[in-house]
Design a protein around this nucleic acid. Structure first.
Lengths: 129, 129
DNA sequence: GCCTTACATTCCAGCTACTGGAACCTCTGG
DNA sequence: CCAGAGGTTCCAGTAGCTGGAATGTAAGGC
């Protein structure tokens, strides 16, 4: 399964520009180049791109993504290290889940309590103050 | 309850630099200035800052935050509009929740399946490929 | 074989959302 | 009155893309 940049980008749900940028900064490298110099990608690279997209969407920095990808790549690293880093990131994600729930609830409150007709003065204003 | 910038920043869990920046771009304005020109903040501004911090942490842009804050502020806007915008954002947040769960599960898989001793070769490598 | 169209390349400029630092002013306690 | 903490503005720099120009290449129709 070998793909050009636009196909891997489409599947990873990332702009091609971003995929090219991730190559430039050596975050996710193509698995090779064609005769003409086109980047080629396989399924492993696709998985990494999807993973990075998700991690980036939740505020992990590029360097943190590098660290997270390292979990999959560095077979030399012993698995106690892997487990320690992954556990730390997992705790961060769980904290993010709780915060996201709070944001969700705040907005749900708006949706639930605004009557949805044309009367002005949404009750959320009192709620916030 | 009136606060200086450092106190409101501490409570909102934002850097003072960022709070000052949000004033500059007119996202969250202080409720006034002291004699000496110090920014002053009340509870409403604090709530807004917390709300913005959460929204920003999940990839909403500054302009989207402006729109979301508008839900609380614009008493002229009829509540059908408010409800429509809030519902749209709520759907986005729910999509983010599902994506975050996927990221969580992927990492949990690492934590669960890496034996956590010093044997190399974490099984996640096979899982990804 | 050539033309068109779509897609690829590099490079460089610009944008968003901060972030650090300099130079300076002000409030507070000893 | 002075030190130190915390406030101000302004300007420069960073992270992570993102758009555009100039150019090269693969694939199907005439």
């Amino acid at each position: 399964m070998t793909m050009n940049i636009s196909e891997v980008a489409r599947r990873a749900e990332l702009p091609t520009k971003t995929v090219r940028y991730y190559d430039d900064i050596a975050l996710v490298k193509p698995n090779g180049r064609s005769e003409a110099g086109y980047r080629t990608y396989g399924n492993v690279e696709l998985s990494k791109l999807v993973f990075v997209r998700r991690a980036r969407a939740f505020g992990f920095t590029i360097d943190e993504c590098r660290e997270l990808l390292g979990l999959y790549e560095d077979e030399e690293r012993n698995s106690a290290d892997v487990k320690a880093i992954a556990s730390k990131k997992l705790a961060e994600i769980e904290a993010k889940q709780r915060e996201l729930q709070l944001l969700h609830d705040e907005l749900a409150h708006v949706v639930k309590n605004c009557h949805g007709d044309d009367r002005p003065n949404c009750p959320i204003i009192d709620y916030l103050s």
